[in-house]
Simulated scan of single mutants.
Amino acid sequence: MTDGIDLLVFGAHADDAEIGMGGTIAKHVQAGYRVAVCDLTRSEMSSNGTVERRQGEAEAASRVLGLTERSNLGLPDRGLFVSAEQIEAVAMEIRRLRPRAVFAPYHIDRHPDHVRCGQIVTEAVFNAKLRRYRPDREAVNVESVYYYYINDVAEPDLMVDVSECYDIKRKALLAYESQFESPVGREDAVWTPLNQGYLERVEARDRVLGMRRQVAFAEGFAAKLPPMPALLL
C-alpha cells in the first residue's frame, strides 16, 4: 500500500488527461503534490500510432509532467461499458493509490469512451468507499471528484490558472506525435480531427477560460463535491 496520492486522474486513452488538465497536473506537481494518471485502455483502436508507440508517448509525457505514477488498466478501447467488472477494476485502482481527489472526463463529449470513462469512475469512487465491497481491500473515501473537459466545454464550476506552467502542458501534448502530427509524407498515418489543428483549438479554449479569470491560460472543471481548500484548485 502506498502513502496515498493527492490527485488521481483517469482517462480513457493516453493523452486525455494532458488535453483536459495538463496544466493543472503540472501546477500541482510543481507545488509538491503527488499526482498519478490511470489510462483505462491501450488505445488499440486509434487510427494513428500503435499500442507500443502510444505507450512510449505516454511515458514521455509522464516524464514531462513529473507524474508520481502512470498506470494502464488494459480495458478494451471502444469497449468501455458501465459494467460491474470495469467498475471494479477502477475501484481497485482507487483503493491501491488512495487519492484525496479524483478526476475524470466530463459526461458530455463527442467521444463515447470519454463519456463512459467518467461514468465508470463515478461509480467506482462510490464503490471504493463501501467497506463490504471487496472487503479484502481497505475502503477509500475520496474527498473530492472533478470532471475535466476534452472535446466539449460546459460552464465550469471552477477554473485553475495554469499560465505559469502552460509550456509544460504544450510539451506533454507534443509527446503524442502519432496523434497530433500532420500525416503528410507519412505512409502509416491518416487524417483525423486530432491532426488538423486540434492542439491549436485546445490552446484557444484555455485562452478563453483564462480571459474569464483575467489570466493568460486556465483549465475548467465541473465539481461533484466541494473543492478541497488544501489543494491549489
Rank of each mutant, 00 (worst) to 15 (best):
P156D: 00
A91S: 15
P183F: 03
M45V: 13
P105A: 02
V125Q: 06
L40V: 08
S163F: 04
K224T: 06
D161S: 09
G32C: 10
V190F: 07
I120Q: 02
G23S: 05
S47H: 09
V121F: 04
L65T: 04
Q214C: 11
N48S: 11
A31N: 06
P193G: 08
H107D: 13
G118I: 00
G32Y: 05
A26E: 02
E88I: 00
C117P: 12
E219I: 01
L7V: 07
R110Y: 15
S83N: 13
V142W: 04
Y149M: 08
P156L: 02
A14E: 04
N195L: 09
R53L: 14
E52K: 12
K129D: 14
Q179W: 02
A26N: 06
A154C: 12
G197R: 12
M21C: 13
Y33T: 03
L232K: 08
R54L: 12
E177A: 15
L80E: 05
D157M: 12
V142S: 08
D188S: 14
L173W: 02
G11D: 00
E85Y: 10
A104W: 01
V82C: 14
A204Y: 11
Y147W: 11
P135D: 10
V202A: 11
Q30T: 05
I5M: 14
L199C: 05
E85K: 14
A61H: 03
G66R: 02
Y33P: 06
S182I: 01
Q214W: 08
I25W: 04
L75I: 08
I168S: 01
I25M: 15
E57N: 03
D167C: 03
F180E: 03
A216E: 11
A60E: 13
E219V: 00
G49E: 00
R78Q: 06
Q214M: 14
V102E: 07
D77G: 11
V208M: 15
K224E: 13
V215S: 11
E18R: 12
G210F: 05
P105R: 08
Q55I: 04
Y33R: 14
L65P: 02
L158Q: 10
R212Q: 15
A26Q: 04
V35H: 07
F180V: 06
A14T: 03
H107N: 11
H13Y: 07
E18N: 08
Y133H: 14
V125L: 09
Q30P: 06
A26I: 04
E85P: 07
I87K: 12
D77V: 13
